[in-house]
Design a protein around this nucleic acid. Structure first.
Length: 318
DNA sequence: AAGACGAAAGTGGTTGA
DNA sequence: TCAACAACTTTCGTCTT
């Protein structure tokens, strides 16, 4: 029995941890919902045979990584020392034809992947993404390339879209604008390519949750942890979660932070919050107003209090 | 002068016939 | 494929501090 690759701990579909590895077919399957998570895997298990009596079982070579263009393994049609062992003239010609084609195909894929992986590493490091997100993005890019979905779109756009998708599926969302800035690809192109890939690969990606943005925005604004947790509390309320649908999640996150900052006497201007969230003040205002409407009187009163406090302080000064 | 607020017009994407 | 539509942006004027 061979263990699945380690980054599949959970089924992306139902979250079950009961994953079954099918040796014969080379597939990982979720035993609860039946989703085939990965197919055509390479057997990464130990070798059966012993090389010498008393030697440990084991295989050799660098660890597999999806960030290597072919996971570190290449197979080529080999050189034949004696081509006449193939027999007929026909078979010899076939051999050369196959060899030529294989070289052509593999060098073009190889070149593409090598460039793409370099680009991926570059963008990921600008965005400061953890390794498992990089791996997921590479895996997606490999899939995309395998299915020939790169046609008509630039490699950069595909890489950016894969990174975006990987971030989303691990709930570490970056905005399209951030990825656009890091990769120098137009935001529209990334979005278009992303949607295309999601559709073609049947990826299941949840709509992103405003709460996932809070920590990052808060630290960019140098807000205290208290404010982060307050903003999260605001967003956890039922009344608020109903508001989420259809709206841009970053706007809601930004408004929640703005409110939390006001309530905690660490006010940031709408401009500042809007900038880190990549939206405009107007949107903050709209979300802010909607949030206050939903939250009812308690928060409104608190905000009035804060305003009054500020006023008193100003009077003292003058 | 700077920030908040809101109205109005414009933009890009989705949806449904 | 086209029009209607919602969300969001841009721009601008006004008010408050």
């Amino acid at each position: 029995m061979v263990k699945p690759k380690k980054h599949y701990k959970k089924c992306p579909e139902c979250g079950s941890t009961e994953l079954v590895y099918d040796d014969q077919r080379g597939e990982i399957i979720c035993s609860r919902c039946g989703l085939v998570i990965e197919e055509k895997m390479i057997d990464v298990g130990e070798e059966w045979k012993r090389f010498e009596e008393g030697e440990k079982k084991g295989h050799v070579g660098a660890p597999l990584s999806l960030q290597k263009f072919d996971q570190g393994i290449t197979t080529n049609i080999g050189e034949l020392s004696d081509i006449y062992q193939l027999g007929s003239e026909k078979k010899i010609r076939k051999y050369f034809r196959l060899k030529k084609w294989q070289e052509r195909v593999s060098t073009s894929i190889e070149r593409n992947l090598r460039l793409a992986m370099a680009e991926l590493r570059r963008v990921a490091s600008v965005l400061d993404l953890p390794n498992f997100v990089k791996e997921e993005a590479s895996r997606l890019y490999n899939l995309v390339l395998q299915r020939g979905l790169v046609r008509g779109r630039s490699m950069e756009a595909n890489v950016a879209a894969c990174i975006y998708a990987a971030c989303r599926s691990y709930n570490l969302p970056r905005t399209l604008d951030e990825i656009s800035a890091a990769s120098d690809v137009d935001r529209k192109d990334i979005g278009r390519t992303f949607r295309f890939i999601v559709r073609k690969l049947n990826l299941k990606i949840k709509p992103s949750d405003p709460r996932d943005y809070i920590a990052r925005f808060a630290s960019m604004l140098h807000l205290s942890p208290k404010i982060q947790s307050d903003a999260l509390k605001l967003l956890k309320r039922k009344e608020v979660s109903e508001l989420t649908s259809g709206r841009g999640p970053s706007g809601i996150a930004a408004a929640a932070l703005y409110i939390a900052a006001l309530l905690n006497d660490e006010k940031r201007t709408q401009r500042e919050v809007a900038d880190v969230a990549g939206i405009t003040e107007v949107t903050i205002r709209n979300r802010y107003k909607e949030l206050l409407d939903r939250l009812g009187m308690k928060e409104k009163l608190k905000i009035k209090e804060m305003e009054a406090k500020m006023q008193r302080r100003r009077k003292k000064k003058s």
